[in-house]
Simulated scan of single mutants.
Amino acid sequence: MKPNLLARTLPLPRVCALVAVLATLPAHAALLADYNLGVDQNTTVWTTLSNANPTRTADAGSDAGSFTIGAPGYQASVGTYSYSTDYSITVTQTSTFDLQTAVFQVDIAMNPAYTLPYGTGPLLSYNGGTQNLAASLFTTNGTENRNTSFGPMTYTGGAWQWDLSSIGEEITSLTITMPVSVHSSISAARIDSGSSNLAVVPEPSMGFLALLGGGMLVARRRRAV
């Protein structure tokens, strides 16, 4: 069993580094929340997933990671996209210390016929394995309407958290794969992993879920007209 490090706090140098990264993020990344996971924390942020960044390079100042898109997904002017069938995205991150938790976030414009979480939701594996662990917590970080080259689109910030503290082996790398519905676009993503098992992602309120579901229903009716 890994030790519980909840009583420890994030040191000032690492806080300053995270603040510096966040200060450089574009406005749409406001739907990606800043979660404090403990004394040791890795952060990887992608805020440009459009075809303007074909290598999907993470933002300057964030830890190393990778972002890949499963076929038939591709990078469009608004971010990852598929016009034919569902696709997937996969992100990875490595760590120099043992991980007890991970948080994955996306800034996504969902196909109006679907809501988050979609399908299985993102699944996490560690140390190069195929454990495919479902997240223990999920929430939404709000919505934002934007005018894009595809027309007006409503983006939602989704966040998932995994509690890895009961895993006996040391965890130093993560792979997270998320199914994405057809006609849905991800413009930004973020992974945070830490040495504490503090639960930071709250469950969404029933009121917000009702509001989100009602909005999707209206959009679906308009699409059917």
Results as ranks from 00 to 15, higher is better:
62 S>G: 09
161 Q>L: 07
49 L>H: 00
182 V>Q: 14
6 L>N: 11
94 T>Y: 06
37 L>S: 02
198 L>D: 12
110 M>S: 02
120 T>V: 04
210 A>I: 14
125 S>Q: 11
220 R>Q: 14
139 T>L: 01
202 P>N: 10
37 L>Y: 00
155 Y>C: 04
99 L>Q: 13
52 A>S: 03
23 A>S: 06
131 Q>V: 01
30 A>K: 14
166 S>C: 02
130 T>C: 11
70 G>N: 06
24 T>W: 01
27 A>H: 09
100 Q>K: 15
89 I>W: 00
114 Y>K: 08
202 P>Q: 05
65 G>R: 05
166 S>W: 12
99 L>N: 07
51 N>P: 00
135 A>V: 09
135 A>H: 12
178 M>Y: 06
64 A>L: 09
217 L>M: 08
195 S>I: 12
88 S>I: 12
46 W>L: 01
146 R>K: 10
65 G>F: 01
38 G>D: 07
129 G>L: 15
175 T>A: 12
28 H>N: 06
189 A>G: 12
165 S>R: 14
109 A>S: 13
40 D>K: 04
172 T>F: 02
25 L>I: 03
187 S>E: 10
132 N>P: 05
4 N>V: 14
159 A>F: 10
31 L>D: 00
143 T>C: 05
98 D>G: 05
55 T>I: 05
78 V>Y: 05
32 L>C: 02
185 S>Q: 11
120 T>Y: 01
165 S>N: 13
147 N>V: 07
8 R>N: 07
103 V>W: 05
157 G>F: 00
224 A>I: 00
61 G>I: 07
103 V>I: 15
74 Y>W: 13
76 A>S: 14
78 V>L: 07
